[in-house]
């Protein structure tokens, strides 16, 4: 038994060494590259997702109101999704130079492939009788959208935001290839360029942590925004709809993004 533990410790020793080394490096360099790069990472990813959302909502609303618009919109955002991020960054450089926009614009465009279908699905989820009741009570189109349809669509939109934010946070690092990547900069400049693993581990760990923290924030936001849905969800065991929704996967959203 003791032998086995000792063997396991010996086997994982390089890993422990890495962890300790990385922790030390990250801690002692927090003020200079790590902290500011993390802040840049937050700025780039959050700005991208928010801009994406600001574009996706009107596109989604239009697609629901005028059905013919949806297929070309969907085709467009999916084609954009297939363009390599690297190429987009390079192509923007001559226009936006080394401003944050070079990273934010492409990343915002990528989120559309996830967010637009979710906004459309969310709006389509509004039951017809609810919509008709709203009309019957005298809601105009804009008020109906703001007071009835968007609130009902919030859970689905947030599900899309969760997938989009995790994807964006992990993708920001690619922008470090044009000198703008937040934690990607830590990975490339301090790790790759100096052949030193600790900054790479720190960059990965902080990026993953940021993704999970953001996901958690979005879950809290959903609970705050949809108090009526709080007690439902996983409660109905075996119910078909409950079964299909696995917390934190956003698999449906992801499929739609690729559809």
């Amino acid at each position: 038994m003791v032998e086995a533990v000792r063997a396991a410790l010996a086997f994982t020793e390089p890993l422990w060494g890495w962890a300790v080394q990385s922790w030390q490096w990250g801690w002692s360099n927090f003020d200079d590259p790590v902290g500011p790069m993390l802040a840049e990472h937050v700025l780039l990813s959050y700005a991208s997702v928010l801009i994406g959302l600001a574009l996706a909502v009107p596109l989604g609303v239009l697609s629901v109101r005028y059905r013919v618009v949806y297929p070309p919109v969907l085709g467009g955002v999916n084609a954009l999704y297939a363009v390599p991020s690297l190429a987009l960054f390079f192509l923007l450089l001559p226009y936006t130079a080394f401003t944050p926009w070079t990273a934010i614009l492409p990343l915002a465009l990528y989120t559309l492939a996830i967010l637009v279908p979710n906004v459309v699905d969310g709006l389509n989820q509004v039951p017809d009788h609810v919509r008709q009741a709203a009309v019957a009570m005298g809601f105009g189109p804009l008020r109906r959208l703001l007071r009835v349809e968007l609130p009902v669509a919030v859970p689905v939109i947030i599900a899309g935001l969760r997938v989009a934010s995790v994807a964006t946070i992990s993708m920001v690092s690619v922008a470090s290839l044009v000198g703008l990547g937040g934690l990607g900069g830590v990975i490339l400049t301090y790790g790759f360029a100096r052949d030193f693993a600790a900054p790479v581990v720190v960059g990965i760990a902080l990026s993953v942590a940021l993704a999970f923290a953001t996901d958690g924030l979005l879950v809290l936001a959903q609970r705050a925004l949809t108090p009526w849905a709080r007690d439902r969800g996983p409660a109905r065991r075996g119910g078909r709809s409950a079964r299909r929704r696995i917390p934190g996967t956003g698999a449906r959203a992801r499929e739609e993004a690729a559809a």
Partner: peptide
């Protein structure tokens, strides 16, 4: 093991590709 598998998948999804690439290159 579904929860574990899905959690691992979500973790993998959050990994920055550049970081993984760099780490393996260094190794």
């Amino acid at each position: 093991g579904g929860f574990l598998a899905i959690s691992l998948a979500n973790f993998a999804r959050a990994l920055p590709t550049i970081g993984v690439l760099t780490l393996v290159v260094l190794g």
